[in-house]
Amino acid sequence: MSYEATFRVWRGDAEGGELTDFQVEVNDGEVVLDVVHRIQATQAPDLAVRWNCKAGKCGSCSAEINGRPRLMCMTRMSTLPPDETVTITPMRTFPVLRDLVTDVGFNYQKAREIPSFIPPQGVKPGEYRMQQEDVNRSQEFRKCIECFLCQNTCHVVRDHEENKPAFAGPRFLMRVAELDMHPLDAAADSGLDRKATAQEEHGLGYCNITKCCTEVCPEGIKITDNALIPLKERAVDRKYDPLVWLGSKIGLRRG
């Protein structure tokens, strides 16, 4: 089954741009990225788009489809109404380079600011012992494919350029949580308090647990519930965070 769809794709660069309409064939079982590739191959060979695996594993083809942040390779055409125009725009939080490609350097900069795993002293390679139930929590966060959709969606930075220097964003606060929950991370022994740094250096306090990040995560990671809120709860012992207090009063978290 094939039909003709109207795609409205943002084209331009840092100087500006506009939505451009394409009439393009859509076939059974296709995803949005297939259709974008067809536009490239038949109508606009220089249409810039990032993609790698086309299987939802690499997190390269993030964009906003009809205003919703999504992976183009995991958005099936059958989930979109065939008689309506499909609008694709680049992620809004990051500066546009060209067409659907944005400068995601912000994320790589933030990644560098999170202190790395600190191996335990005196435990040799091959001698690491951990129970599955103790690694489950960090493993959930390590499912992250770094599509940066959560970073793009988080309202702390989405329309607030001024917050970017102080805020690591959900992906990298989750990285702090991941290391904090790693059974053998030796940060504490070396004098590094990961919970405190989340609050003091990576802007955890800006997060007001609206769960937008969780909603857009293509891996279904419960970023807010499992990473950010526990981090806040741990941080709250040291620092009063009115949002955690509020959250606990209005039932945003359990227990």
């Binding site: 795993f117 690491y128 012992r129 951990m130 960090s138 390590r142």
Partner: peptide, 20 residues
């Protein structure tokens, strides 16, 4: 084996056996 064990010292989290 050495190459795999070394990954753990860099933070990798593999699935575990019952004895860890």
């Amino acid at each position: 084996p050495e190459r795999v064990w070394e990954l753990e010292t860099w933070g990798a989290l593999f699935d575990r056996t019952k004895d860890g």
